[in-house]
Design a protein around this nucleic acid. Sequence first.
DNA 1: TTGACAAGTGACCTGCCGTTCACTATAATA
DNA 2: TATTATAGTGAACGGCAGGTCACTTGTCAA
Lengths: 200, 200
Amino acid sequence: MAKDTKERILATALEMFSQNGYAGTNIRELTAALGLVKSSMYKHFASKEDIWNALLDRMIAYYGERFGSPERLPPVPDSPEAFIAMTMRMANLTIHDAQIVMTRKVLTLEQFRDDRARALATKHFLTGLTEMFTHIFAGMMEKGLLRRDDPAMLAFAYATPISALIHLCDREPEKTDEALRQIEAFSRHFIRVYGTTENA
Amino acid sequence: MAKDTKERILATALEMFSQNGYAGTNIRELTAALGLVKSSMYKHFASKEDIWNALLDRMIAYYGERFGSPERLPPVPDSPEAFIAMTMRMANLTIHDAQIVMTRKVLTLEQFRDDRARALATKHFLTGLTEMFTHIFAGMMEKGLLRRDDPAMLAFAYATPISALIHLCDREPEKTDEALRQIEAFSRHFIRVYGTTENA
DNA sequence: TTGACAAGTGACCTGCCGTTCACTATAATA
DNA sequence: TATTATAGTGAACGGCAGGTCACTTGTCAA
């Protein structure tokens, strides 16, 4: 085994932390899953907590480069159907991407004891999505696709129901299909209520 | 110390489990908080897991008797203002009642490893509130307070944003006031969008 | 060829975990 | 008063947790 051991430790730690939590994970199991012995871990990290901090650094950095900069904002859709399609693309990605799912789970489990996890959880679960949709809705209002209203309020009203269904999928993955159907139904409902043209 | 020790153990367990999780809680601290020594716990419960199961039994029973029966459904409001007032009453209760807050937190922390916690979490966070508002909105539509639409979809669209803000309060209690203001603003927005009469 | 270094090992340490058990104190019951 | 059940105690348990360390191995540069 080569130089990527540090990466593999982080990957496995994310897996185990997201399933059993930080306190419920031990170094023996973690390293054994990599075909190593627990003392080997200390060649790469100073402690268990060090792994946790490195993981959080990663998550924070990843979130920042992915959603932090304005140029990363998605393009404003050109039609109601394009808006629904974009929603479904995002939902599918965020529900099926193992990395993202594990990140959400670990933030869920550690949000009450770690301040950085707490802050990142709020971004992931609430403000991040809302800000993104605020931008999109402002654009759609300019294009005449949505009735004029407070884009931030609409974004909040749109992002949080979807977020609730994403959490449901994290909790009960067997309900994923049902949740995706519900997301689409809600998206269509939303367009029906807030849209300007009543096509399809 | 008397016969209510069992109750006090359960109460303290809920406190500690909701803060540090099941794995992050130990019997020594738990009993010490009650002025007892750890071995005393075993006069009341067979094991740590036994405490956990008893706690879950309680939570499930409490939820059932509180929200399970149809006669426990709240009355349908008679005006938009009454609806908003009811929402704020509910929100204040659920955000400030320590017992309820701890229940939500513990379900959040254990939802991925315990099947009963998983099921109860979905009820608490999603289906319970949604069903309640489905009933309320159906009644409000009958009374002509809401435009005719699918009450279940409206309930989902109303309950989940509020639920998201409740979770925010659990995570960052210092944002409680802001969250309550946001809930009221959202509630007014909702009435503006879905209501039939446009009075304040 | 040698030396230095990075990666991995296994034995060992300390400390805490949940749990058991023989015991005591108390208070109600017979 | 003697008996019995209940609640609480403290010492001890085996086990496993995170962590340290002297050591081996492999790689590569000097």
